[in-house]
Write a protein that binds this DNA or RNA. Structure first.
Ligand code: FES
Ligand code: FES
Lengths: 144, 144
DNA sequence: TCTTAATTGGACAAAATTATCCGATTTAGG
DNA sequence: CCTAAATCGGATAATTTTGTCCAATTAAGA
């Protein structure tokens, strides 16, 4: 469904969110350890997330990544996925036609569209804070 | 969502189905032309579909691919996708955890599961014949 | 029997994704 | 000023997916 980059990205952002709630900045090393992802690859993803203003990064000795608390409840899964994988997943024809539209749809269009819209809806309604809280409560995990 | 191989595979199978209804066998060349897919790559996919008994192939001068009419209404999108992409899409954790389960779910599990089950349900309920008929009626297309 | 048109199968190539490495830069603090 | 610890950015490597090429095989029909 999502790319590896996106999977790592989402997990990373959740971990950063968790730690940001206590005011802490998290280092790449800690993130990569916490979500069990390849360090250097994760660095690239975080770099790009910082560029698109999903997370804030600071260099230097006590630097690291963080997400302001007020942002956490506003940032949705939808925006995170778009930032990493682009809107391809949400726009693309399920059978790979050049464009998905009503006027010349592919054979699965009508059925596929419903699923896709449910997915978009779900992602737009899911914010980062609730995901972090679920991990914090021990209701869900980021590894194994 | 699906791999390229799977997209080509589904379209190919629909086209074969369409032609099979008039008793015709379709050649790779015709299929690849009809669905606008790379010929040699399509050959590989059809080869594997033939091996897993989704389609029937025959060599020789008047050979080609076909799908018996009685099979068309029984064959579902689900089975076609499984034959090409495996059950990965339907089993895999949305965030890439080693396994998706209720006892230690990832943060998006509960929401993701619903979407995934809708997708599975949709695919199990969609049979090849209805897809072919929709193209035949001009209600949907396989190219552009 | 020969030709022609088809699938099959193996090896290979290209492109995209995933992953690693390393030097440059930044910043806090001794 | 110097060091340590962190991100950044560019180059490169490995892996997977996508795509190509070509010879072998099969079967119908002249
Ligand atoms: S045209 Fe294929 S999903 Fe819309
Ligand atoms: S555990 Fe992640 S989707 Fe089920």
């Amino acid at each position: 469904m999502f790319s590896k980059a996106c999977e790592y990205g989402i997990k990373a952002v959740i971990h950063i969110s968790l730690q940001s709630q206590t005011g802490k900045r998290v280092s790449l090393k800690e993130i990569s350890g916490a979500i069990d992802s390849p360090l250097a690859f994760t660095a690239k993803i975080l770099q790009s997330l910082a560029k698109s203003n999903i997370i804030e990064s600071s260099k230097g000795s006590v630097g690291g990544y963080h997400i302001p608390e007020d942002v956490q409840s506003k940032l949705t899964l939808y925006e995170i996925v778009i930032a990493i994988d682009g809107d391809n997943i949400f726009e693309r024809c399920g059978l790979g036609l050049r464009q998905c539209n009503e006027t010349s749809p592919c054979p699965i269009h009508s059925k596929f569209k419903i699923i896709r819209e449910n997915l978009i809806d779900m992602m737009k309604k899911t914010n980062l804070l609730e995901l972090a809280i679920s991990v914090d409560k021990g209701e869900s995990v980021l590894v194994i």
